[in-house]
Design a protein around this nucleic acid. Structure first.
Lengths: 225, 225
DNA sequence: GAAAAACTGTGATATGAATCACAATTTTGC
DNA sequence: GCAAAATTGTGATTCATATCACAGTTTTTC
């Protein structure tokens, strides 16, 4: 690979713990692939053969449920995409799809295992990332099952603004059906609630862009259900 | 500690990877505590100071949600109880409560970290356990949000029989309110569905014991909704 | 740039399950 | 062993949201 990981600006917190020598090995065993919007990066039910790392772009993680797809979460760089699968199960338990042009590094799994075994700082960092992910997913599940649609939509909008785009104006790259799958609501309900938010002066929508005007109210809706 | 981990019959898959020397250190830095039914083992919101390992008994993991408690899952030995918290966050993100007399080993966190750093087989095993947990929680969340009450209750009954008690007759140690919190339904709905199952000849209930009579039908209900 | 496809908005209706209310039963503590 | 507390059963009512149906709008494609 011409692509030297040493000079990569998007290194993971874990990769920063690697020695020069280890980073070199990573460079050789790492392949960067570009995906267009809508492209499938990881497909549920197929064998997992590499560790995937999101270098740039934006992706959604989704699972086929008994009735419809559930969008588990939207992931931004720099994050590993299939860690739980890589070590917990050989078969991918979920799919990952690009929702904008994205770059993904595929790392050879045996090298990754070797790094884990030989560099405790690296493996500790991976452990921390996994743990945070699990805690987050517990909390998300509680919200998904207990809040009602308005509250869950408020959650997602705040997450977009605060954690993904770091701005109160942002483009919505997924359609309302997907938003529905992300908050466990029907497409129609999403549309209705979004209209309500606009009518109540909480949001302004123009084209694919959403602007949060009244963040406090949105936070209240998020908190109260 | 007089309690030598070396001779413990309930060692975790990870602990089996430790050397004699490491096991000795574990023995010294490990305290076993007995809990009675209803006793709180880990309390959400408090500082996590040890790694907890369930040696015997049965516990529930639960989180305070925006409206009510959610029972995340029922955990049987031999499993670590607070791993994600130990490494992901200093503050416990969930509570653990005994639902029958249980023994829990509290392991000194700095020793645990040292073992992770020095024994790659051990840390790999811990990693695997974490990953499996995360995948499982994804799947559970999909079921919780998409299936309806009958399906979710069927799931839980099958889980009890197949994974926890390994028998189609088993005692129910939690009340219907808790079952409700485990399947995201109200206490009343649980009572109603349970009665339906009895009327349909799927279950037999006597006292606190449940017997699954028609497992196939239960599996169908679990699969179809 | 016209036709097709994908997406969105909104009303009417149906429905699963929560909530309320209270009786019946079981368990617990002294 | 009896009173108090906890748990369970079941009907009536309410409510949030899914579903259906279809029109309007935007985006894609060739």
């Amino acid at each position: 690979m011409e692509n030297k990981c040493a000079f990569c600006d998007y290194k993971s917190a874990a990769a920063r713990k690697l020695t020069i020598d280890e980073i070199d090995k990573l460079s050789v065993n790492c392949l960067t692939v570009k995906f267009k919007k809508g492209d499938s990066i990881i497909r549920q039910g197929t064998y997992s053969t590499n560790v995937a790392y999101l270098k740039s772009g934006l992706v959604k993680i989704h699972i086929d449920g008994p009735y419809h797809v559930q969008v588990v979460r939207i992931v931004k760089p720099s994050s590993y995409l299939g860690l739980p699968t890589t070590f917990g199960d050989k078969i991918n338990q979920y799919s990952v799809t690009a929702i904008e042009e994205s770059e993904v590094c595929f790392i050879d799994i045996s090298l990754f295992r070797k790094l884990l075994a030989t560099n405790p700082d690296f493996s500790n960092q991976i452990l921390i990332e996994l743990c945070k992910g699990e805690l987050e997913s517990y909390q998300k599940c509680v919200n998904r099952t207990q809040k009602q649609t308005r509250g869950k939509l408020a959650d997602v909008l705040l997450d977009f603004a605060d954690n993904i785009y770091h701005s109160d104006i942002f483009p919505v790259l997924i359609n309302q059906e997907d938003i529905g799958n992300l908050v466990d609501a029907s497409r129609e309900s999403v549309s209705r609630v979004l209209s309500e938010f606009v009518k109540d002066g909480i949001l302004k929508i123009s084209g694919r862009n959403i602007e949060i005007i009244n963040k406090n109210t949105l936070k209240q809706i998020s908190a109260k259900g």
